[in-house]
Write a protein that binds this DNA or RNA. Structure first.
Lengths: 179, 179
DNA sequence: GCCGAATAGTCAAGCCTTCAACTACGCTAG
DNA sequence: CTAGCGTAGTTGAAGGCTTGACTATTCGGC
């Protein structure tokens, strides 16, 4: 479904000439689709369950968690955006909506007049505390409960390998993560 | 960032009493985040590159591929939605937009008066043929080129394990997939 | 100090997704 | 044959995301 057009390369050479697409063989296709579908379904499922049971989408949840883990429960907008793999614009919109719920407030940054701080309110922290058990149960049920210890180890290895390529700076944050 | 609130369970027992959240330990946290971030970043990257270089989002690409692989390049709307992990409504909107581009057309289903067939046009097939090399190159560069054969095998194993839990019917389609 | 370049964040327009009706058709029982 | 129920698909409104333009502030060289 994703890398192939029916007519392509039934008997392609092992090493296609430069310029020719390097089509996936049957084994690669199967691995790719298994990864793609499972990632999609798992993310959808976790997001849906969390949203329905707590009213907090996974995107919002990540923002609240990121804030809750910092000293003073506050963070610069850009830093927060990076941590949540979000664009500046998207985060700005999201924080506005969280502000309307009373879970976050904005505060001008003392050191840099251009900057804004997003601050987690007590209400926001309470909402996070209420949602966390639901989320962790979802991750347990749909992920860890399904995997052997070896598979968990493989998952970590795979994820970190891809992260090193996709975003070398993110992986550092992983290692020093307080949680 | 995802399953933990800072104050929670620093010295939690090995097996929490029933009802207590089964918090993730440090090792599980790291595996979970590595998986989550890498999945997010990889999907974003592939979608962004495909969209910029071909004007076709990954969601549209999947629809075109699914149609191209069938006999007659046509498929029932519901079947197509299932294959693309999409809701009925979402697919209906997407097909409308693809229709405006002239890449797909709707046709009433002869056997079932309620049904509609989505049919891939020649223009649609040409668009797909143009996009496929871009997509496969992205998957190569950002995924397979980064992994050892063992890691690819682990990825397949992991994905299929999760699929068996999340959606047992999808995995069958994987095995008989023509690509 | 002052000017130009870079950075932080916001905003508006357009596209996409979701949710909840809603239409239309087919199937089965009485 | 027709009433009632289930299925297939569409639609419109509401809200979220992306892109590009815009404002405000800081930094770095002169």
């Amino acid at each position: 479904m994703t890398a192939y057009v029916s007519s392509a390369s039934p008997g392609a050479p092992e090493t296609p000439p430069p310029g020719e697409p390097r089509w996936l063989d049957a084994h690669e296709q199967r691995a790719w689709r298994a990864w793609l579908y499972s990632a999609q379904l798992l993310q959808d499922r976790l997001d849906r369950e969390l949203t329905h049971e707590t009213g907090i989408s996974h995107a919002y949840y990540e923002i609240l968690v990121a804030l809750s883990e910092t000293e003073g429960r506050m963070m610069r907008m850009s830093e927060l955006a990076d941590k949540c793999l979000s664009s500046r614009s998207r985060l700005s919109h999201a924080v506005s909506r969280l502000e309307e719920r009373g879970w976050v407030r904005r505060q001008v940054c003392a050191e840099d007049g251009r900057g804004q701080l997003a601050v987690l309110t007590d209400e926001g922290f309470a909402a996070l505390e209420a949602a966390a058990p639901v989320h962790v149960e979802g991750v347990r049920t749909h992920l860890f409960d399904q995997l052997t210890p070896e598979q968990v180890e493989n998952m970590r290895d795979l994820g970190e390998t891809l992260l090193r390529h996709l975003d070398p700076t993110t992986i550092k944050a992983l290692h020093q993560a307080p949680s």
